[in-house]
Design a protein around this nucleic acid. Structure first.
Length: 577
RNA sequence: UGGCCCGUGGUGUAAUCGGUAACACGACUGACUCUGGAUCAGUUAUUCGGGGUUCGAGUCCCUGCGGGCCAGCCA
């Protein structure tokens, strides 16, 4: 699949897409003959949570780069902190990357597999006088570190002899000391304006069981120490990370240079920010644990598993990632942009079906009691090969409540008293009467139809302003439909006022469950006209949106659908004004 | 009163290294339409400010302003 490297959604020409700044760097490096022109990248998540759409951007960047330049991209778990990491997260991350469509065969690595090598290198640095065991506790280290504007002070343990350091490090590893009592530190510069260079910790003591190494270790490497080594071991050429690691690059380089080992190039880019959503793992985890959503894969979550359950396709996610670009500027992408990519893909591929979400009964008074018409309906107007299906029409139908107004305003093209509209693929129908209950609610419409308009066209050339979707009452299949809206009611949920919590901005109407939806009987036949890489059934309910069949269907006793995204709705826009 | 990074229409990203600021999304018109969808045509709007170098600056230099990141034994 190379289409992504060509002008996606661009001017229609075959001209190669303009390079982003990372590609520019890589091409320059290749021209300069670095790493023999090889390109090897990696996506290095810590398995301490589920992946979200921001990770999708990074995955797409890293795997995409490898694809583009004929290189390789690995999935590497940066599992250096056993306190936060779990096997469940490892499994979910692998599943998510595969779902996106990337081949992981022989490409999954773990930082924990390199622990011994890392330790040997640490010994090497101690021997070279470039690292030392420090007995300061966490609070003391903080005091010695100084501040952003004041230099730090050297640790009193900084000038220990090599032999003593070696002995202490060995005993740290053997478990002779309690957690937090000592660290191994790099000997760099306590006066550096870059805080990361003020003798950063390389190892801390953690008597914790690691998901993969168990109790083999009680000292664990810090990110800065470990990450470059991992990259070096795997012969990564371009180590791509987010902007907040920019200040860490001098340290990344320092460790590799001090060791004199293979040295990749770190490049930083701006991570994805989306409005109306939260993206940090901490907040995502809080949404789940706080019961604000049903789980990591709740369709309102920005997690990859949530988007998947919502019905978003890997293709849509990847075009989205291509089109937002890669840069060093911290920007926020409009959610509408993601919706656009989703509609763009689903419009082409999703079979159409008629479904009434909020049913209102319609009786066609001049239609014979026991008659049934089988009408032809197009499965996908964007794809002739999807064919047609039969839809039954009878005396009693359901239409959408929103498609009738007793006192219609200007520009409302749907049903009203005395108005004629088309029932899609069926007949022209005229509303004669709205039947109300004692409370004044409309409970039924009495209409007449014109038999001459069978199929949906009038032989006398009569035009009609509106076309409605409908379902034959006696053929209808009951369904549950879940309508989702943005999880937050404010553009930036991270910004909180004094005395408020970010969770206060959760949109109370982000989920609306419709228990009483009506589906046309042949929906499954139509749905099966399309195949999807993940076997999720996706359809368009005509005039309302794109929907995906939820796994809860198994236990619900009727089909359960998640609304992935609405159709563009210009009437809603007009009505809103 | 530290260091590093970044400022291009409403939004996001380009402009191949100094040579006519473009593409996409959005918004707004109109055409077409058996989905108020899709499609098609069109309109709108851009280089943070101030200096400087140059025939010529979004691009280079200086300066101001604005934003982001950094004081975990997290990643």
């Amino acid at each position: 699949m190379t289409s992504e490297s060509h002008n996606p959604g661009g001017d229609g020409s075959d001209a190669p897409r303009r390079l982003n700044f990372v590609e520019q760097i890589i091409e320059d490096d290749r021209k300069a003959g670095k790493w023999d022109g090889r390109v090897c990248t990696r996506f290095p998540p810590e398995p301490n949570g589920y992946l979200h759409i921001g990770h999708a951007k990074s995955i797409h960047l890293n795997f995409g780069l490898a694809q583009r330049y004929g290189g390789t991209c690995y999935l590497r778990f940066d599992d250096t902190n056993p306190i936060k990491e779990e096997q469940e997260y490892i499994d979910s991350i692998i599943a998510d990357v595969q779902w996106l469509g990337y081949d992981l065969t022989d490409r999954i690595f773990y930082a924990s597999d390199y622990f011994q090598q890392m330790y040997d290198w640490a010994v090497q640095l101690v021997k070279a006088g470039k690292a030392y065991v420090c007995d300061l506790n966490a609070e003391e280290v903080r005091e010695y570190r100084g501040t952003l504007t004041e230099a730090g002070k050297n640790s009193p343990y900084r000038d220990r002899g090599v032999e003593e350091n070696l002995d202490l490090l060995d005993r740290m590893r053997k478990g002779e000391f309690p957690d937090g009592s000592r660290t191994l530190r790099a000997k760099i510069d306590m006066t550096s304006p870059n805080m990361n260079l003020r003798d950063p910790a390389m190892y801390r003591i953690l008597h914790a069981k690691h998901p993969r190494t168990g109790d083999a270790w009680c000292i664990y490497p810090m990110y800065d120490w470990a990450h470059g080594l991992e990259d070096s071991i795997e012969r990564i050429t371009h180590s791509i990370c987010t902007l907040e690691f920019e200040n860490h690059r001098p340290l990344y380089d320092w460790f590799l240079d001090a060791l004199g080992i293979y040295h990749p190039r770190q490049i930083e880019f701006a991570k994805l920010l989306l409005n109306y959503t939260v993206m940090s793992k901490r907040k995502l985890i809080e949404l789940v644990r706080g019961g604000h959503v049903r789980g990591w894969d709740d369709p309102r979550m920005a997690t990859i598993s949530g988007l998947r359950r919502r019905g978003v396709t890997p293709v849509a996610l990847k075009t989205f990632c291509s089109e937002i670009g890669v840069a060093k500027f911290n920007s926020t992408i409009d959610l509408g942009r993601l919706e656009y990519s989703i509609r763009e893909d689903l419009n082409l591929r999703a079979p159409r079906v008629m479904a009434v979400l909020n049913p209102l009964k319609v009786v066609i008074t001049n239609y014979p009691e026991d008659q049934v018409d089988e009408l032809d309906a197009v499965n996908n107007p964007e794809d002739a090969s999807a064919g047609t299906r039969k839809v039954p029409f009878s005396r009693e139908l359901y239409i959408e409540r929103d498609d009738f107004m007793e006192d219609p305003p200007r520009k409302f093209f749907r049903l009203g008293p005395g108005r004629e509209v088309r029932m899609r693929y069926a007949y022209f129908v005229t509303c004669q009467e709205a039947v109300k209950d004692a409370a004044g609610n409309i409970v039924e419409l009495r209409c007449t139809y014109d038999p001459a308009t069978r199929g949906g066209d009038s032989p006398d050339g009569r035009k009609v302003k509106g076309t409605l979707h409908w379902v034959s009452a006696k053929h209808a299949v009951d369904a549950e439909v879940r309508l989702y809206d943005r999880l937050f009611s404010v553009e930036n949920p991270n910004k909180v006022e004094e005395g408020q919590a970010w969770t206060d901005h959760i949109n109370p109407d982000s989920l609306k469950v419709l228990e009483n939806a009506k589906l046309e009987p042949n929906w499954r036949e139509a749905a099966d006209k399309a195949t999807w890489s993940d076997d999720t059934a996706r359809v368009q309910f005509e005039r309302t949106g794109y929907f995906a069949l939820d796994a809860d269907t198994e236990t619900a006793g009727k089909p359960v659908f998640n609304r992935t995204v609405t159709l563009k709705d210009t009437w809603a826009k007009i009505a809103g004004k």
